[in-house]
Design a protein around this nucleic acid. Structure first.
Lengths: 106, 106
DNA sequence: CTCAAGTATGGCGATATGGCCATCTAGAAA
DNA sequence: TTTCTAGATGGCCATATCGCCATACTTGAG
């Protein structure tokens, strides 16, 4: 049940990679279709180097993979499990809203 | 498909709450049974104030709820969706290991 | 080879996070 | 009441994260 410190750190690192609004937007976009850095830079509206670093984090964590296509680097989802992840996040959000509604109604 | 900036920030905040080894340990322990702060302080092996702050983050996010029992504050899971979350994390971890094995075998 | 487009990386400042200590509060027991 | 245990909070410092700029690298075109 309870795991080692190293195991929790490994899991936390994955979660940390998923814990940034820009990276969540990138994952959402990549769920639709593969994209190159320049497309995602335009989508995000931040500096190209910023987007590149976000992608590097997701790639390093194993969530994305990258393939060179000429001068462009095309990124794609490497895992199909993100729906589970987002399902949990959404569930927590809904519960939070519900809890706040209960506070108002009392 | 693509959501607003505020929506991604709300989701990122949940993910961020889950992105710390100590908090993952606490959630793992609380999946087994409800616990008070002093029990979790002993389990984690950090300062009581540190554990209290971690719990406050999880409570604020809506993942945990707290109930006073005399002088003790007993925390419990508020959402049943963490298995989904951990399932995704585990899946990413396995994939990462597999990718590294492939690098070695080439 | 030279140039330009597409990316990655180093560096820097601003901000956020995490840990401990000290302190304050709440409830239970003497 | 005083005292003790349980817990929360403020403060401080160390470290991590994030964003941009500047720059280096890579690839295809000319």
């Amino acid at each position: 049940m309870i795991k080692t410190k190293a195991q929790y750190e490994a899991r936390a690192q994955i979660a940390k990679a998923l814990a940034h609004p820009t990276r969540l937007l990138l994952l959402d976009a990549l769920a639709d279709k593969d994209l190159c850095v320049c497309e995602m830079t335009e989508l995000v509206g931040a500096d190209q180097s910023t987007v590149s670093k976000h992608l590097a984090i997701l790639k390093e964590t194993g969530i994305l993979q990258m393939e060179k296509q000429g001068a462009m680097n095309v990124y794609s989802l490497r895992c199909q499990c993100l729906e589970q992840f987002f399902g949990c996040i959404e569930s927590v959000l809904r519960q939070k809203v519900q809890a706040q509604q209960e506070l108002v109604e009392i």
